[in-house]
């Protein structure tokens, strides 16, 4: 097993990828970090317990309760938001880990009173009943389209499987996604 010195490791690490800008924020360990979170294009300065997940920061600290907590374990997708345009489960990540990221929540999807076309397609196709999983479904659908995965019914089914809907609206969700895709 090859061994090299620690300084060589550091060298190898910094030389192995693209240069990264020095991130702002806590350089040393803290239990209550202060940082800036960019949500829906607005910057919020937060000083919170390091334990606060992105989901709880959005809901409890910023009052953005459109993002839902369904399991808090990464098993249902109700908390789906976009980070730098990619869909993630906001319950399994810490808020402080997202300093410098662009977070988009359901509150940032419509333009004022003008619904985003996927929102309109969900209403038209009755792609929800109780509505609790709906913000997560919508953010996941947008993320899926960003990924280039909204191809056909079967692909949409697979690619929307990270969002559980207990009311059982799945076929209508697929209809809504393809309806939107077809019109855009």
């Amino acid at each position: 097993m090859a061994r090299t010195s620690l300084s060589a490791v550091a060298l190898q690490l910094s030389g192995s990828g693209a240069a990264v800008s020095e991130p702002a924020g806590p350089a040393s360990a803290t239990a209550t970090p202060t940082f800036v979170l960019d949500v829906n294009g607005r910057e919020h300065q937060l000083t919170v317990d390091a334990r606060v997940t992105l989901l709880d920061a959005l809901r409890d600290r910023l009052g953005l309760t459109g993002t839902k907590k369904g399991c808090d374990q990464g098993t249902c997708g109700a908390c789906t938001v976009l980070v730098n345009g990619r869909r993630i489960d906001s319950c399994l990540t810490l808020a402080v880990m997202h300093e410098g990221d662009r977070v988009t929540t359901i509150e940032g999807l419509a333009s004022g009173e003008q619904l985003h076309p996927i929102q309109a397609a969900f209403i038209k196709n009755d792609a929800f009943q109780c509505g609790y999983c709906t913000p997560g479904q919508l953010m996941s659908a947008v993320g899926m389209v960003n990924e280039g995965h909204a191809i056909d019914r079967n692909t949409v089914r697979e690619q929307m499987s990270g969002n559980i809907c207990r009311c059982g609206c799945y076929p209508h969700i697929v209809d809504a996604v393809l309806d939107w895709k077809g019109r855009s």
């Binding site: 459109g66 929540t105 619904l115 929102q119």
Partner: peptide, 15 residues
């Protein structure tokens, strides 16, 4: 369409 649809798809409805 559901009357409360816009509230549900924008996350404005409070549970």
């Amino acid at each position: 369409d559901r009357v409360e649809g816009p509230g549900k798809v924008t996350g404005r409805i409070a549970y």
